Simulated assay, not measured.
Amino acid sequence: MSQHPIGIFDSGYGGLTVLREIVKTLPDHDFLYLGDNARTPYGTRSYETIYAYTLQAVKYLFDQGCELVILACNTASAKALRTIQQRDLPQIAPHKRVLGVIRPTAEVIASYTHTGHIGVLGTTGTVKSESYLIEIKKQAPTLNVHQQACPMWVPLIENGEQDHNGADYFVKKYLDELFSQSQDIDTLLLACTHYPLMLKKMREYLPETVTILNQGDIVAPSLADYLQRHPEIAEKCSQNGKLRFVTTDSPENFDRQAATFFGQSIKSNFVDI
């Protein structure tokens, strides 16, 4: 493994949907993916716990030679990123960088809506943090943002039920609750990296005119642009086209689930962070 991969962190499997798109965009780069499966889910945990877990993950990736770490987890991006950037990085690694998935999304989402009304579907933690409301308001002050927590979607997806009849109730329930806030919503943001796997089922309950945004499609070109604008970081990231996957829980379970999220079979190793 190259000594300077780009680190990709998620609380479990969902970040693999982001990594999949990043690899398509930057196929020559090296990546190290860390899934904290032993402590997932993050979405219902306290700020203090999410921050502590995320910082441990970032430190591990730094120790593995990562000069740049992407928090491919909305909950970690919402609750831990700012503190790590402002308080921890200057102390532990002032020349390294940690980025999230919320700001790149907030910067471009206004360009997708015609009505000025967007819906944000996320975990309970992401929705309660109001991070998307805050960041989108900075970028597009006139945009109307409607949020909806979908706490049952991650368990359904991780149990392989996303395309089965059992998922229908909770897909319809959360979409109905979102659109009860406004019938003018024409753009939906999947603000959890698990949710692209629910896309097929969502489409059964949505008009074709509603645009659904997958964060991987936004984050990947944003990362490429970041590296172009920051050559001092880009030159430190090795380019041998290598991928490595590690998990804090069973590699066998991770590999079995990861194939669904990443789109191809992988081989991971256990790590204790």
Rank of each mutant, 00 (worst) to 15 (best):
Y51W: 11
L16S: 06
N144I: 09
Q3N: 14
G216Y: 10
P41M: 02
I6Q: 06
F31R: 04
Q56H: 07
Y47S: 04
F245C: 02
F270L: 15
T126I: 01
L143W: 06
M1K: 11
H29P: 00
G263K: 12
R103Q: 14
G125H: 01
T40A: 15
V58C: 12
P5V: 07
D272N: 15
P231H: 05
G160M: 12
E158V: 06
K128Q: 15
G166E: 13
L178C: 06
D272T: 12
Y51D: 02
D28F: 00
E135D: 13
K200N: 13
V108T: 15
D272M: 08
L89C: 11
P251F: 10
L81F: 10
S111F: 12
A57E: 01
R203T: 04
L32H: 05
Q139L: 00
Q239C: 13
L223N: 02
L133N: 13
N214E: 15
I109H: 09
L199A: 07
L178Y: 09
C150K: 00
V219W: 10
H230A: 02
P141Q: 09
Y174E: 05
V210W: 04
Y195S: 03
A224W: 02
C192M: 01
Q181S: 11
E161M: 14
E235A: 08
Y169P: 01
H4P: 02
S182D: 09
D88G: 00
T44Y: 00
G216R: 03
Q85I: 12
Y53V: 00
T247A: 13
I50S: 02
H146M: 01
L156Q: 08
V171A: 10
T75P: 00
S265E: 14
T124N: 03
T187I: 11
P151K: 00
H230P: 05
T115A: 03
S268E: 03
E67R: 11
E67M: 07
Y132V: 01
Q228A: 14
T40M: 14
D30T: 05
G100F: 06
S131L: 00
S2Q: 14
R244L: 09
S222P: 00
N253F: 13
S11T: 07
L197S: 08
I157W: 10
K236I: 01
T209Y: 11
A57W: 01
Q215E: 14
G15N: 04
A110G: 15
Q228L: 13
V98D: 01
A80C: 04
A78Q: 02
H29T: 04
R256D: 11
P5F: 12
E177T: 02
E130K: 15
V120L: 05
S222F: 11
A38V: 06
A167V: 13
I70Q: 03
I233H: 03
K236A: 12
Q85H: 05
G43H: 00
Q64E: 14
A80K: 06
L26E: 06
A224C: 07
V101R: 08
R229D: 08
L81G: 08
Q239H: 12
A57R: 06
D186L: 08
T49Q: 14
L34F: 11
S77V: 03
H114N: 12
A78P: 05
V23L: 06
K128E: 13
I212W: 09
L190F: 03
N37T: 15
V69F: 09
